[in-house]
Design a protein around this nucleic acid. Structure first.
Length: 271
DNA sequence: ATGACTAAACCTTTTAGA
């Protein structure tokens, strides 16, 4: 089973690239961020024609998230219950999890397991000290409080999306120049680690990865060509799922397209 | 360099992204 996340920076512009990517990368669930369109404009039919179900939570101009999947999402929830938010940033759904190889023990009794997928577009935060930064920290706290309870209900949980936070200097092309800047502040990293402390693990770092692995590159100044990037798109899996994670990678190929998103997809494989 | 590039909307200029 494969899951992926991709901030596509306008689905209106990037739909052909998403469909092309899916045809080469037939994942089971793809979480999209920054749709930048309203629900009435969401191209359900185009995904259906490609063999995918879709649920969306759109918004005009900004934000907007969706889950694209082989089987229909169940028990879909939009945004963070308990955290009042005007912006469309989170969409969650449950999917059937195939039994792993050799898993025929009475423990599962052959029963179908489900996996809870939370797709999220974390706030950017703009600048430390700004109102948007305070909103980011409040949002992160709201997410954490909600996820703590969610993990009790859904032990098989994946939180993936555009986090807009780096874990540490290894995720930053210029850690000196970006010290204490947005995506790199102690406050943001505290919240990211607090999410991990709920019982999640960064799938990327479970495996050897190329040096200077990033998921976003600035459009300006030949950012991609010079690998001036940040790793801010993450897939965190719950402890219960961790033994099943067999691979995690960033697919830089779509960033080489003619009109690319500034983000690359991140893919995780579960055995 | 309060810059660069991209997308959307209040569209020849501003807002936001990261």
């Amino acid at each position: 089973m494969k899951l992926a996340t991709w901030n596509i920076n306008s689905l209106t512009v990037r739909l052909p690239q998403v469909l092309e990517w899916l045809s080469s990368n037939p994942v089971d669930v793809l979480a999209l961020q920054e749709l930048k369109l309203t629900d009435d404009k969401f191209p359900h039919a185009a995904f259906k024609a490609a063999g995918y179900e879709s649920v969306c939570f759109g918004q005009k101009t900004y934000n907007g998230v969706a889950l694209i999947s082989r089987t229909p999402a169940q028990d879909v929830v939009r945004n963070i219950p308990g955290f009042d938010d005007d912006l469309a940033r989170v969409i969650s759904g449950s999917f059937t999890l195939p039994a792993s190889a050799g898993e025929t023990t009475p423990a599962t009794g052959g029963a179908v397991q489900t996996i809870r997928v939370v797709g999220a577009y974390f706030p950017n935060g703009q600048e430390p000290g700004s109102d948007k930064f305070e909103y980011k920290l409040a949002w992160l706290k709201g997410l954490r409080d909600w996820l703590r309870a969610e993990l009790l209900v859904h032990p098989n949980l994946v939180l993936m999306g555009d986090y807009n936070i780096t874990f540490d200097d290894a995720d930053v092309w210029d850690p000196v120049g970006m010290k204490d800047q947005i995506h790199c502040t102690d406050e943001e990293r505290y919240e990211l680690n607090a999410l991990v402390a709920l019982g999640l693990v960064d799938a990327h770092r479970l495996f050897p990865q190329p040096a200077k692995s990033y998921s976003w590159w600035d459009y300006r100044d030949f950012g991609f060509r010079r690998n001036h990037g940040l790793r801010i798109d993450h897939i965190l899996v719950s402890k219960a799922l961790q033994p099943r994670v067999v691979a995690c990678s960033i697919d830089k190929l779509p960033r080489k397209n003619e009109r690319p998103s500034d983000h690359a997809p991140v893919v995780v494989a579960l055995g």
